[in-house]
């Protein structure tokens, strides 16, 4: 980090190598489309480089990087042309529930993309902690640090996220035959 701040751009390569997959996965969790996610991961790293001089070495780098990533992904998500695709993916999840065989239903609805589509339909305040917790597998404390809210607030949002998700899924469930 110090090397990059001293002007060694090439040293940034180490940061790229270390965090590119993480940022790609995070972007994919938000956007669903691999091509969009890869472009987003590029843009996030470009932003991280641009704002690196604001980073204090006393802070932890990962939450700082996540903060930049989330800020950017919020913007992209808001204007994402694939929002319609998010909705379609959700409908696919609901449609899958129409199958007659429980095993077939499970195979279709348990896929990462279907779960992601369902989570992505939650409001932003619930979507972000849900993705950071269940897809990024981050601790409550780290999520609180990234979102700059208290740990109690994170737990509360996760509870509401689970509740909202369950409600949506049950609404889409087929009646008993």
């Amino acid at each position: 980090m110090s090397e990059v701040l001293r002007g060694n751009t090439e040293a940034f390569r180490l940061i790229v190598e270390r965090y590119k997959n993480l940022l790609y996965r995070l972007s994919l969790s938000f956007l669903g489309n691999p091509e969009d996610a890869e472009e987003c991961a590029q843009d996030i790293l470009m932003r991280a480089f641009r704002y690196l001089h604001r980073f204090s070495l006393e802070r932890r780098f990962l939450p700082w990087l996540y903060g930049i990533a989330l800020n950017y992904l919020r913007t992209v998500y808001a204007r994402n042309r694939s929002r319609e695709a998010q909705r379609r993916a959700w409908e696919c999840t609901a449609e899958a529930g129409q199958a007659s065989d429980p095993q077939e239903i499970l195979e279709r609805v348990q896929s990462r993309e279907n779960v992601r589509a369902a989570v992505s339909c939650l409001p932003r305040t619930l979507r972000e902690p849900m993705i950071l917790h269940y897809f990024e597998e981050l601790s409550i404390a780290t999520i609180a640090e990234i979102l700059q809210i208290g740990e109690v607030n994170v737990k509360s949002r996760l509870l509401r996220g689970r509740r909202e998700l369950r409600r949506k899924l049950e609404e889409g469930a087929t009646p008993p035959s």
């Binding site: 999840t93 899958a96 529930g97 129409q98 199958a99 007659s100 065989d101 429980p102 095993q103 239903i105 499970l106 609805v109 348990q110 279907n114 779960v115 369902a118 689970r162 998700l165 369950r166 899924l169 049950e170 889409g172 469930a173 087929t174 009646p175 008993p176 035959s177």
Partner: peptide
């Protein structure tokens, strides 16, 4: 079938 469709995605 009903529970698979209601809870399956949450598994």
């Amino acid at each position: 079938r009903r529970c698979a469709s209601a809870h399956g995605a949450l598994l």
